[in-house]
C-alpha cells in the first residue's frame, strides 16, 4: 500500500559503474517533513545515492520514486521539485547577494512579482537587508551558508538535499544553521542531509548509515544509540565500523 506521506521511496536501488557496485540494493523511505540523515565514510556510496535521488544519475536497477515522480523516467521533472545545496555552499562569489537571489529565482522560473516579495522576506529573515548590495565574496562563511540554504529552497521544493552542508563551519554557527533547517522542515519541506559531523547526526529525525555501498543501519539516533550501547552517534559509528571490518 502506498503511503501518501512518503516523499522518497527507494527499493533495491542499485548503481553500477562497469563492474564496480557503488550502491548495492538500497531500500528506505523518507517521510514528509522529516529530517533524514545520511551518514558514511567517503567512498561508502553516499554521493552516488544522492545523485540518483536528485535525478542526476540514472539508477542501474531497482525502484525509485522522488516527490511522486519516477527516478528513471522523470528525472528532469524531479529537478523542478527538489532543492540542492552542496558542501561548498556554492554561490557566485563575484555577484552581489541580490544578484544571486535574482539568478536562482530566475533559474527556477519564479515570476518577477513573487521574486521581489520573496527577496525582501528572505533578506529580512537572514538579516542581510543592509548587505544586499555586497558581493557574496565579502560575506562571513556563516552568512554564505545560510544564504545558500535559503536559495536552495527559494522555489518551495518538496525535498531539499544538503550534501555535507556544514563543512568548515564552527559548532555555534552550525547550530544556528540547523535552526533554519528545522524551520524548513516545520513548513513541510523534507530535508535529506549527508554529513560526517556526528553532532549533526544527532539533530536528525532518523539516520541511515552506509558502508561499502550498503545501508548497515537505519533508525532514530536514540534507538541506534540504545542498540549499539553508545552514549553518542560517534560511538555508534565507531562500533558499526568495527563490526563491519
Amino acid at each position: 500500500m502506498e503511503n501518501e506521506d512518503i516523499v522518497i521511496r527507494v527499493r533495491d536501488l542499485v548503481k553500477k559503474f562497469g563492474q564496480f557496485v557503488a550502491d548495492d540494493h538500497l531500500s528506505f523511505d523518507v517521510y514528509k517533513g522529516e529530517i533524514f540523515g545520511f551518514l558514511g565514510a567517503n567512498g561508502a556510496g553516499k554521493t552516488t545515492a544522492i545523485r540518483m535521488l536528485c535525478g542526476l544519475l540514472e539508477p542501474t536497477s531497482g525502484e525509485l520514486t522522488v516527490a511522486g515522480l519516477d527516478g528513471f523516467k522523470q528525472r528532469e521533472a524531479i529537478k523542478r521539485r527538489i532543492g540542492y545545496m552542496s558542501q561548498k555552499f556554492s554561490l557566485y562569489e563575484d555577484l552581489t547577494v541580490n544578484e544571486n537571489i535574482r539568478l536562482f529565482a530566475g533559474i527556477y522560473g519564479i515570476p518577477t512579482r513573487i521574486r521581489k516579495e520573496k527577496t525582501e522576506e528572505l533578506l529580512e529573515k537572514l538579516e542581510l537587508t543592509s548587505a544586499r548590495k555586497k558581493l557574496v565574496r565579502d560575506l562571513p562563511l556563516g552568512w554564505k551558508q545560510k544564504l545558500a540554504f535559503s536559495l536552495a529552497i527559494i522555489h518551495d521544493p518538496s525535498i531539499v538535499f544538503l550534501d555535507e552542508p556544514s563543512g568548515g563551519v564552527d559548532p555555534v554557527t552550525r547550530r544556528r544553521f540547523w535552526d533554519l533547517i528545522y524551520e524548513a522542515a516545520h513548513e513541510g519541506i523534507t530535508v535529506f542531509v549527508t554529513t560526517h559531523y556526528m553532532d549533526e547526526a544527532e539533530y536528525c529525525d532518523r539516520v541511515a548509515i552506509m558502508s561499502a555501498g550498503k545501508i548497515v543501519a537505519l533508525d532514530t539516533p536514540e534507538a541506534l544509540k540504545k542498540e549499539w550501547d553508545a552514549t553518542s552517534m560517534d560511538g555508534v559509528f565507531l562500533k558499526l565500523a568495527r563490526s563491519n571490518e
Binding site: 535525478g55 542526476l56 528532469e76 540542492y84 561548498k88 556554492s90 533559474i107 527556477y108 522560473g109
Partner: peptide, 14 residues
C-alpha cells in the same frame, strides 16, 4: 571548481 556547476546541473536548466 567553485561547485556552482553542480547546482546548475541539479536545477531545471538543461
Amino acid at each position: 571548481e567553485m561547485g556552482t556547476m553542480e547546482i546548475l546541473l541539479v536545477s531545471p536548466l538543461k
